[in-house]
Write a protein that binds this DNA or RNA. Structure first.
Lengths: 343, 343
DNA sequence: TTGTACGCGTTATCAT
DNA sequence: ATGATAACGCGTACAA
């Protein structure tokens, strides 16, 4: 590998000058700059990134932590792909690289491990759940001053840097839409409570029902775990009380689709016999039958914002501590929420 | 940050000894080893990975190149998620890290850029297409002796290291299955020709038809581009000649689902009026209505094998040049291929 | 079995 | 505007 030294010799300057040229530092004679660049071109010199990291004492890597994803799919891959793309776009703009860390199933959540080998300067943590163990791990990071960012998850009562979406407002809009279409008996199929999304969506649902003066009977509140299967199973419960339900708002697309599959087996077709709206607007929403109305979440932008913020926080130190944000969602209406309430 | 030097001082040994302990090198007195480990524990010492990379002159990173994925989804995110998981599992086992590189739309495919900054020791390239430009980029890598591996793509006539699946055999099995179910007029909806999968699947289809003594009229060969939309549009063509078609084998799940959606609008239900089998067994196969029969491809294992092979090739030099492999597929039968041919 | 000493390719500080 | 030089934290050949 050709090094700075060889470039310096060929250009007839010192090594320091070569560095200055490549880092655009200090004043320098255009002629020398040109000589150096020409020499570098001739030798096909490229700075050694590892040596740079070593000297600068920063890795130039942003770590991205992905949760363990077992065969029972609670997350859609769409979700992570979008967020990752956003992160990728931002790190490229900042000359950073992206180091992926896939958690193991049993892995104790000792995030500090990632930092202490100094292979990452900051981290974005995806798919975090609100459990005592998680809170403790994150708390520990924060106390040690290690820069990190959570995406699409809020820890009430803590002051972590988070980039979230306004799920409560999104849910409110979805339920309002169903009401405007004439539906009154609207059920809510929620996901696991350890995700803050769940609480937010429940809140949006309840507010929309209250604002419309509609009663929320216990039977209208169903509980799933974000898997297709749990939505499929909820169809049974719903069928039991089919006279009391005209529409369902589900906390994600997978459950919504499972629910539609379950009810179809009993003869109820979404968009004809009842209405459904899901959440996330993943690509499965377009693949389902009928196509699923859903709340679109700006995952790409969330990833990008998280990367921007957490790197700014790191690069400018405490001076620019990032502040949590909440991006807006939007409702995408498709066939599953069409039709009208049964008379 | 606490360094080797401090540990050495506290333990009353030289820095070299500390290194030996942490690398398990050379013979050493158990007592000294224990003293060093105790000192390290006390100081919470962890080797600096960047400095290690610098000294060892290897990054300890495996690069993974992902293609640009525009809004028109030709790849399923499932596909990449599975392969990435496999890679992730393997690199962890080898103490490596995973550096993600997301290509930009216009980006000229100069893969050497990834290596010359020395941030990766080897690369796995996903979603490569067989174009002159691609071949040239890869050829260049090979000539420079840079270790890389292609997953799920074959370049006929070249000797790249590739981990592929036996798509021809998988397709053969799928079509044979349709024949065993009594179908005779079987169409094939292929994807873009720049992916070797397409040619392989076509070959499997043709062989199965030939082996069964069935004629392949030109009308039975449809062309899509792996997007749902292209499958949806193929439904029109198919409908034109509906008397000549009883079943369809599609080169991926997205097209198969689009096709089912298109034909449903005309009144044909998959699994009742005609049969469909897709490829990849992505999770959308379980979400579609009816659930889609599909050829399962061991993406996880392919990713794992690619990582294993390419790292072995790098770590042991030319001595252990990895040899291309082709993993087996399997057919998963669901509702879309049930039913029986119309009389 | 352990210590000494050098090198790795930069960045950054201080002279000139 | 440019050059000399000291870090940076570790691996490792060689010496003891």
């Amino acid at each position: 590998m050709v090094t700075r030294k060889e470039v310096a010799e060929l250009a007839g300057v010192s090594e320091a000058t070569v560095s200055r040229v490549f880092n655009g530092l200090g004043p320098m004679k255009p002629a020398t700059k040109e000589r150096v660049l020409e020499a570098a071109r001739q030798l096909d010199y490229h700075p050694n990134a590892i040596a740079q990291s070593f000297a600068r004492r920063r890795s130039g890597n942003l770590g991205v932590v992905l949760p363990y994803m077992p065969k029972v799919h609670l997350f859609s891959t769409y979700y992570f792909a979008e967020i990752l793309s956003g992160i990728g776009e931002q790190v490229r703009e900042q000359g950073y690289d992206l180091l992926l860390s896939l958690l193991k199933p049993d892995e104790s959540l000792d995030y500090t491990r990632l930092y202490r080998s100094q292979k990452v300067d900051a981290c974005i943590i995806l798919g975090a759940r609100d459990t005592p163990q998680q809170r403790q791990s994150l708390q520990q990071l924060q106390e040690q001053g290690l820069p990190f960012c959570l995406v699409n998850q809020h820890f009430e009562g803590s002051t972590f840097y988070e980039v979230d979406a306004d799920h409560a407002e999104g849910s409110y809009q979805a339920v309002r839409h169903l009401q405007e279409e004439g539906y009154r008996k609207i059920a809510f199929l929620n996901g696991s409570p350890e995700y803050s999304n769940s609480a937010d969506r429940l809140q949006g649902y309840l507010r929309a029902m209250a604002d419309a003066g509609l009663e929320v009977t216990p039977g209208l509140l169903l509980q799933g775990n974000y898997s297709r299967k749990s939505g499929y199973e909820a169809a049974d419960q719903l069928w039991e009380q089919r006279e009391q339900v005209e529409a369902v708002f589900a906390a994600n697309d997978r459950m919504a689709i499972g629910l539609m599959q379950g009810l179809r087996e009993k003869g109820w077709i979404a968009g004809r016999d009842f209405a459904v709206i899901g959440c996330d607007d993943s690509d499965s929403a377009k693949l389902s039958d009928p196509p699923l109305s859903s709340i679109s979440v700006p995952f790409y932008e969330m990833g990008k914002e998280a990367a921007r913020g957490v790197l700014a926080g790191f690069l400018h130190g405490e001076s620019a501590k990032p502040v949590s944000v909440k991006l807006p969602t939007s409702l995408v209406v498709r066939q599953s929420s069409k039709g009208s309430p049964r008379k």
